[in-house]
Design a binder for these strands. Structure first.
Lengths: 210, 210
DNA sequence: ACATCAATCTAAACGATGTCAAGATAATCT
DNA sequence: AGATTATCTTGACATCGTTTAGATTGATGT
């Protein structure tokens, strides 16, 4: 089946790409990392993948559908990061803080991808990726539930999850503000700063007091 | 001085607009409200203002500079809303919650404007609008400081402000998620939902315990 | 009053973008 | 092998941000 009808020297791609869907998503991520979100045009992605501007339309309905695929990969990568962070903490309090720090660090290290992830979540009728099945949001909820030994009411559990998620996302969007530089310095680095903010958010005051 | 050199019937504008700067910003806000952020092109703004596509360039360097002007108006409007909310609460605890609710409601009622406001804050070297002088951020800090009678350390005050701001912004971005509909229902409406989340964020647990 | 100058607007164009229709090419199925 | 379907390219269209050159007006100085 790999019978190429063309010479196909090292740099001539066969007419049919083989797995253009994936190649396009990877090209998009490459552009995001190297040139930022402003450079992420459909044509640029096609160019990067070595294909004509119209080719993507055989795999994605829209530019937005391509972006959704990119965002989906982003949420999966975040899941991996959160899982790793959760496994690394000893007690359940530290696990929660560690989760928050990992979340914000992911956003800091992949700012363009993070923006695409949220831009795709907005204005969407269906459930956004992060809330599905075992998505990042559910991971936070599970961690909180574990922490309280499963005794907390469903409503309070949901409220606490929302509160924690909002804090994480809000901090993720502000982490870059230069305004905070001296404060980070005073606290001994960015991660210490993040831990301080998360601890300041006594996110469990309500849960703990009953 | 109102000597028009043209007949200038009701619908013929004089060659010089008079105050195109303001007219453009207002046109932009009108488009944002009625057609959303996707329709906000420079040409559309010029069209809405009844002027050629190149005219805005005599008042703004860029499209982004126009957007910054729009964002600036947005932050000022938010300031007004927050000031009103702060005045309406009795004790300082309620004042804080009321501030948060007002913030999120502003974002909910002006979603497109809110997005422009934050898009302009990002990737900016200088201090963003909301943090300047008596901007919204400072209003939050002042409210927290008032609450503790000015006894809290500068670092803790800053951390608490950041925490509160992050929670507000995070919640503002998620308030539209359909996922939360049943929870809002169970709590008796959207505003009750907001109050519950803010109270769940024991934002002052750390401050209160010393 | 009038000429000059600067500010403001228009017209026309350029390159880039998202998207589509028509045709070329290749893989697959019968 | 022949037909069908999936995939890619070419070429086009409308729109966008932006620039350049020229037209129109208000202000300034005499």
């Amino acid at each position: 089946m790999a019978a190429m009808t063309q010479p196909a020297t090292a740099d001539t791609r066969p007419y049919h790409h083989g797995d253009l869907s994936r190649a396009l998503v990877e090209a998009a991520r490459r552009i995001l990392e190297t040139e930022g979100p402003a450079a992420l045009s459909l044509r640029a992605v096609a160019r990067e993948a070595g294909v004509s501007p119209a080719a993507p339309y055989h795999h994605f309905k829209d530019k937005s559908e391509l972006l959704e695929a990119v965002a989906h990969e982003g949420w999966m990568a975040l899941d991996v990061a959160l899982t790793a962070a959760r496994a690394k903490a000893s007690d359940s309090n530290a696990r929660m803080t560690s989760l928050g720090v990992a979340y914000v660090c992911f956003a800091r290290d992949n700012p363009a991808l993070y923006r695409v992830m949220y831009d795709c979540s907005r204005d969407k009728d269906s459930l956004p990726d992060q809330m599905k099945e075992e998505g990042a949001y559910c991971q936070v909820r599970n961690t909180i539930d574990e922490r309280s030994g499963g005794t907390v009411s469903p409503i309070d559990l949901e409220l606490a999850t929302i509160a924690a998620w909002c804090a994480g996302h809000g901090l993720a969007e502000m982490i870059g503000f230069k305004q905070f530089a001296p404060l980070k310095e005073a606290l001994g680095g960015e991660e210490a700063f993040l831990r301080a903010v998360f601890e300041h958010l006594g996110m469990f005051a309500k849960l703990d007091q009953g």
